[in-house]
């Protein structure tokens, strides 16, 4: 079984996001970038399938500029077998990414595609679902457990009311939630080996996809600074302030 995992380069979760002074975008100059944490979970899920003897090959795909090869190398160090960078320039919107991935799927013919449920920069939570629609494949989003039995995929999903269990036919799309697994560290020998693993670069044109911007970024603003709290002396004072100052009751 062949597994395709997607990997996105995003601002590191430790970094305090800063808006550019001209409000045109988030400032990414010399800021630490990393693999989207949900994508790390997706890679780990694929590697565990391979370690369990259920998957034979793991292909990691990333859409974006050349810099995202760094995250592909991380995926290769974690256990993916080869990488594909789709050189799209700056990251397209989710539908563009889904179309590019659909073209990769058509060429690679994987049995399973594992994606992060969303990326921590845009937080769109759309690409997996759009890819499933474009391919007309079954999908299980927000997976917190994953098992493959007799060619069928059993997925536990985290939903508002609790847990939902699904059984899917392959090929299928899975998007990962936080509790699916705890990703491993890449070891030094594996990082060295990863540098020698194959990494292909493809353009949207080669994949036959014309990217179209469906959204336009008008302006980015930092959220308002939080005001310091106050201590109130009594319940009646609290109620009074909630009514007259906070105006929430």
């Amino acid at each position: 079984m062949k597994v395709l995992v997607t990997v996105k380069r995003v601002i590191d979760y430790n970094v305090k996001v800063r808006v550019k002074p001209d409000q045109s975008d988030v400032d990414l100059a010399n800021v630490k970038m990393a693999m989207n944490p949900f994508c790390e979970i997706a890679v780990e899920a694929a590697v565990r399938l391979k370690e369990a003897g259920l998957a034979s090959e793991i292909v990691a795909v990333s859409v974006g500029p050349a810099a995202c090869q760094e995250q592909l190398r991380t995926a290769l160090a974690l256990g993916a077998d080869r990488g594909i960078q789709i050189d799209s320039g700056e990251a397209p919107d989710p539908l563009g990414v889904a179309k590019l991935l659909a073209a990769v799927v058509a060429a690679e013919k994987p049995d399973l595609v594992i994606l992060g449920k969303q990326s921590i920069d845009g937080d769109n939570n759309q690409t997996g679902q759009m890819l499933a629609a474009l391919l007309d494949w079954p999908q299980a989003t927000f997976a917190s457990a994953l098992a493959l039995e007799a060619g069928r995929l059993r997925v536990t999903r985290e939903i508002d009311g609790g847990l939902q269990s699904l059984e899917l036919n392959l090929p299928a799309i899975v998007t990962t939630d936080l509790r699916l697994n705890e990703p491993r560290y890449a070891s030094l020998p594996n990082i060295m080996k990863a540098k020698k693993k194959p990494l292909e670069v493809k353009s949207p044109v080669e994949l036959g996809v014309t990217l179209k911007a469906h959204t336009r970024l008008l302006k980015v603003e930092a959220p308002a600074e939080r005001q310091g709290g106050i201590k109130v002396g009594s319940v009646s004072e609290l109620v009074e302030k909630l009514k007259s100052e906070a105006k929430v009751i």
Binding site: E182, P183, R184, Y185, S187, L188, P189
Partner: peptide, 10 residues
């Protein structure tokens, strides 16, 4: 922990 990885001699 789960992902424990021992140090490596260089």
């Amino acid at each position: 922990k789960d992902g424990f990885m021992p140090g490596m001699e260089l």
